[in-house]
Design a binder for these strands. Structure first.
Lengths: 343, 343
DNA sequence: TTGTAAGCGTTATCAT
DNA sequence: ATGATAACGCTTACAA
């Protein structure tokens, strides 16, 4: 004489089921299912009834049952090389914002700029039968590549651009960002331009390549002024590398940093040791973090559309997961040079 | 005459099932299930057989089927108020590090310091029947609270401490952190001490309260020197509030900032406008972000054990999810005052 | 347009 | 210690 469903049954969750919604709405379960999923074959009046019943019962679908019945999960895996970089946080936020309202759950993996770790994460997350893969760049192990191909799971690559057949990617040209940096500093009349990059991931390398190319075209390239280290990028490291370079190559009059953290460190050490910026040396950053506009002097930087990249990539993913081909598989979201006081 | 299972059936995933493993091992599916789950009633010899069969077939359990049958997922929901703060990133990383190897998937929700958004996330994520909840602090809507209680899902609260019965929490006393800040600045001989806090979450308020208490005990409290704004915390805002306070209350000779971002902004603006730090005004931050030690002057700050909090909270959760009670439900991880140049 | 029947892959229950 | 059986809550296939 109590509640009709057995609350003590450990196999139930105690939550209302689609059956109960259907009963309350006076339709069959499958009709309720269709109504709730917005399948057009259901009469508007019934849809309304079912909606109301679901609301009344506080019904939420059981994702496990749905996934089992349809052999499709609703999870999308996103793999990024770092979380301590605001860059990827902004991108992740945007992805969440697009995917969550559509009922997808986002599984985040951080591989700490390590190819093997990315491969591992991929292998692990594949067990969840993800509906989609959002990956960062194109630099990964052969096994990882094979897993992705073999899985047949739709994949969107973020941050970089690649014209390969069947590749969906959203980003910008890292190389031309580097070229733009070079052009800007050269236009400022600088003659001894250096590049400082850390955490040598593909994109840092690509930017350095663009920068070098720009210098070469102007006949200003000097390999001694290229500082590359695999150490993880940080404010402290930026300061350290800056001081070392200024001491060993005193003729340097402009430095392009692979990212803003490094540039902040340089600015701070310049202040501490009385090196005039941009008087003696111009400093240009990359990514345009929120703090950059407030540095002393205010840091010129190349602003990257990380939020837009996340949004667009997620939107592409939605199209792909719906079984369609995206109209424009390669999306160049560009970048913007912000000229402030440091250059 | 082809493969025994119909590869064209859209309802299957094409992956090997427990049934096939069982068949290969020559046991019943349930025995295979038990063997794979490490349930002790299975004979060692059979366990070995099943293990081998699973390996041979490259079997991975179907999480959806498992969740449906057992009414238990393997996902743990973590809700944080922000991701743009390195604080929570470090905590999340640690949580992942503990939970992922144990086979749990971590679902992250960012509620942007908004109680209603937290409530929404909670409601949404509850549909996944999470096995555990890792929440930030104790300040939430009544509905959220009720949902948590009603769900019976084990919960660990991070960042703050609370001696309530049956509450599992890992953090430190925000109030005594504030008191420590006051004591330090007072010991430095400062007489006009201000508190600047933004993004008025519970913890910022609590720290302010501790700071105020410290000042009151020394007879140094002045309500005019308490600047609280709900605007989101940022470097830019810190600079702005700093300049405004110094102009309106020129007697101020020490400022405790609710977090390091704000303090960085203050330091930068002090530099720009020639306000001597710590000469004219001492600046103390909170959280000790990586950049703090490199500011000019180097920022004194209260360092918080965010990584340890995440790790410990996840470990508590593991205990709880195993159905046990944690030995020490309230874990004070402390904090550490780092005295550098700015105070 | 709606409904019936069956099954997705796993685990709980209860028997042996 | 092992197994037969019946769910778990939903969706696909097909029928009406």
């Amino acid at each position: 004489m109590t509640s009709p469903k057995n609350d003590k049954n450990p196999r139930t969750t105690g939550r209302p089921t689609l059956n109960e919604v259907a009963r309350l709405a006076g339709v069959s379960p499958i009709t309720a299912s269709r109504a709730l999923r917005g399948i057009s074959t259901v009469a508007p009046a019934l849809v309304e009834k079912v909606r109301q019943a679901a609301l009344d019962l506080n019904y939420v679908v059981n994702p496990a049952a749905r996934a089992l019945a349809s052999a499709q999960s609703h999870s999308v895996v996103v793999l990024v090389p770092s979380l301590s970089n605001l860059l990827f946080i902004d991108t992740l936020e945007a992805i969440h914002q697009v995917l969550r309202p559509k009922g997808f759950e986002v599984l985040i993996g951080n591989y700490h700029y390590c190819r093997d770790e990315e491969e591992n994460l991929l292998r692990n997350y594949m067990a969840y039968q993800p509906r989609g893969l959002l990956l960062t760049g194109f630099d990964r192990t052969e096994s990882a590549r094979r897993m992705i191909d073999a899985s047949q799971v739709p994949c969107v690559y973020m941050m970089e651009l690649d014209a390969g057949a069947g590749v969906n990617c959203v980003g910008f040209s890292q190389v031309s960002a580097g070229e733009t940096a070079a052009a800007h500093l050269i236009a400022r009349g600088r003659k001894h331009l250096a590049y400082i990059g850390a955490q040598l991931d593909q994109r840092t390398l690509l930017r350095g390549e663009g920068f070098r190319r720009g210098l070469q075209q102007a006949g200003l390239y000097n390999p001694d002024l290229e500082v590359l280290t695999p150490r993880p990028s940080s404010v402290g490291l930026g300061g350290e590398l800056f001081l070392h370079l200024m001491a060993s190559q005193p003729q340097v009059d402009a430095i392009f940093f692979g990212n803003d953290d490094l540039a902040h460190g340089a600015l701070l050490e310049a202040l501490r040791s009385g090196i005039a910026v941009p008087g003696r040396v111009a400093i240009l950053g990359f990514n345009d973090l929120p703090a950059s506009a407030h540095m002393v002097p205010r840091l010129s930087s190349i602003s990257t559309p990380r939020e837009a990249i996340g949004r667009r990539a997620a939107e592409q993913m939605l199209v792909l997961m719906a079984g369609n081909r995206v109209a424009q598989p390669v999306q160049d979201m560009g970048f913007e040079l912000k000229v402030r006081e440091s250059t």
